[in-house]
Simulated assay, not measured.
Amino acid sequence: MKKLIYLLFFVNCICNWSCGKKEDEYKNLDCSSINASYTSTIKPLIDANCTSSGCHDAKSSNGNLTTYEGLIIRVNNGTLSKRVLYTKDMPKRSALSLEDRERIKCWLDAGAPRN
């Protein structure tokens, strides 16, 4: 039993350390010079990487990200930021570039406006 407790403690420490490291990637991000408009930046990124593959199009059971209304659901429940910015397991084909992730982060930090 003691070994199991130590193992769980160790796994938790590693998990917390690795999760914290991922957040540091955006720690010093300055959004003042980054275009983070939904219409000109975010929607084209989502269309090119998430909806064109059929994963999150209007017919998808994985969630429709073709509209602002569909995307804001993922913003509000935290899955967009978690999956795209931190675990980076979305989009499935390949992770977005740091520059694209920074644009998304700045848009999210601005309150995910419909601009």
Rank of each mutant, 00 (worst) to 15 (best):
C50S: 11
L80K: 05
G63M: 03
Y26L: 12
M1N: 10
I42G: 05
I42Q: 03
Y86H: 04
W107Q: 13
E99Y: 04
I14P: 15
F10P: 05
G111N: 08
I5F: 02
C31R: 06
N16I: 06
T39N: 10
F10N: 06
S53T: 13
N64R: 00
K88S: 14
V84E: 08
T67V: 04
I14V: 15
I46N: 00
E23R: 04
R101K: 12
F10D: 08
A112I: 08
M90H: 11
N49E: 14
R93L: 15
F9G: 03
T67F: 02
M90A: 12
A48D: 15
K3E: 10
S18I: 15
C31S: 05
M90K: 09
L96Q: 13
D47I: 11
R101E: 06
R74I: 01
D100G: 03
I34N: 07
R74H: 12
D89E: 14
C50F: 14
V11A: 09
P44Y: 05
S33I: 10
L96P: 10
N12T: 10
I46S: 01
I42F: 02
G70K: 00
D109M: 14
S94L: 15
K2P: 09
S61I: 15
S18D: 10
L4H: 03
K21F: 09
A95V: 13
R93V: 15
K105M: 13
D100T: 10
E69D: 10
D57N: 03
Y68E: 02
R114V: 12
N16G: 10
S40F: 03
Y68L: 01
D57S: 03
R93W: 15
T51I: 06
K92W: 09
N115K: 04
N77R: 03
R101V: 11
K82Q: 07
L71S: 02
K59D: 05
R101T: 06
A112F: 00
